[in-house]
Design a protein around this nucleic acid. Structure first.
Lengths: 242, 242
DNA sequence: TACATACGATCTGTATACAGGACTCGTTCT
DNA sequence: AGAACGAGTCCTGTATACAGATCGTATGTA
């Protein structure tokens, strides 16, 4: 599984960091060349990324980096509004001292406005903070779901690159959540988390979004490549078998 | 993808219905014989089931039907307590008339006490009800997560087969949720859903659990097969990359 | 007899060959 | 000229061959 895992990690990273543009079309042979591997592990990695909704696979047609849509962004935020407060409350009750120490560590990053690299590192720390809190809830599923959510969310933030002016208050909100957890006050942690998510939504809804591979409703996805057939969102989607 | 999909569905069904016992060891060649297929699509289906936590894959060692543990059951219930009320509230606000009609349909199953087949059908309807409500929340992710949760939960119920005496009140609780959604009262829907989950937890915690492949803490999983090496829960688990 | 080691069988991970479907582009008919 | 049709090419899905790893067993030694 080592080869397949290597590709999975590499490809995943390229997608999350938007190195591979949302909506871009990929082929197995391209990926084989890019990651110097055979088709089998490539396919395995891609299937896994499809499960995480980072990649869309259309049978007999090809692979597409999952497009970013307002719809998805809204849904992700909404779920964060459901999960994060619950996780914070649970963490306030159950987090070990070690976990609290980790949480504090991730919350203490301050980034330097205007520096792209610093911004990207901040995004990773932000992600880790949220995941660590979820892990401290003592519920593995909560950790998994939050991790999944943050992975999908981070792509949107990578695209923005203009949160500079909000850095301070964002960090303050993080600290407020951490304080509540450390003080073992579940209700307060829940409230601070709710507040934080809501404000983040407000902040991101104000910024202008560069139209790089950003499609308004799963429609249109040029991304440079010649003739990019846009798969319908439905085809590769989730399976809610009734 | 047709062959791979066929196997995925079949294997998934066999695992969910506990036809393949929790903890059981499988090998690719076994699966090839069982589902009359080649290794490639078999592997693909298995990877997908691993993502759903229904199968554990230990590199170079083999496949194992995910064991049932008290830990996982508790975690699943806890997440249901987070998701279901939120989904019900959202559904009360956004469900279309058609969705409400579907929800009502799934809620109206009454099963005949003592009949195993009827019980199993009831479980499916129960699952569909919860998933349909989540879908009516208007949030795809909510639907996906709930579907995932219900899939993992249903295995535990399949193992119990003794909810006979609780059938009536369970159905009543379902109706209460549906009524609140239909009446477009989010808060009430949330409360009824919360109540329902809590009572379900109480009910299931009272029943005696047959020790068929049921391991108390991911330890020991005989399940008949000779020499079943028990993989550690950590190995195939989630990836919370920090 | 108990333990350590080395060999062999078996199985998974990877690479590659084969088969069938989808898109492209040129031709032909209206 | 424009549209419909069809052959060719490319690509994905599937089957199978090859390589490396793990586990069980047998053998030798203390």
């Amino acid at each position: 599984m080592t080869e397949s895992l290597r590709i999975y990690v590499a490809l995943r990273n390229d997608i999350i960091s938007c190195e591979l543009k949302p909506g871009a079309s990929l082929s197995e042979s391209e990926l084989c060349a890019r990651y110097k591997a055979s088709r089998t592990p490539i396919r395995e990695a891609c299937r896994r990324l499809q499960e995480e909704a980072l990649l869309q696979i259309v049978p007999f047609r090809g692979y597409f980096v999952a497009p970013l849509t307002f719809d998805e962004f809204r849904n992700l935020n909404e779920m964060q509004l459901v999960l994060d407060p619950a996780a914070a409350a649970m963490a306030a009750e159950r987090a070990t001292e070690e976990q609290i120490a980790n949480i504090e560590r991730w919350a203490n990053y301050v980034y330097h406005a205007g520096q792209k690299k610093s911004y990207e590192t901040f995004l990773e720390w932000n992600r880790n903070l949220h995941v660590e809190i979820a892990a401290a809830s003592g519920n593995e599923l909560m950790a998994e779901m939050t991790s999944h959510l943050q992975t999908r969310l981070i792509r949107y933030f990578y695209l923005v690159i203009s949160m500079s002016s909000y850095g301070k208050e964002l960090v303050d909100e993080h600290h407020a959540i951490v304080r509540a957890i450390k003080a073992r006050r579940p209700d307060q942690a829940r409230d601070r988390a709710t507040e934080h998510v809501i404000r983040t939504i407000e902040r991101t809804s104000r910024v202008t979004i560069p139209s790089v591979g950003y499609s308004r409703d799963a429609a249109s996805s040029p991304a440079g490549s010649t003739s990019t057939p846009t798969p319908s969102r439905a085809s590769g989607g989730h399976r809610t078998t009734h």
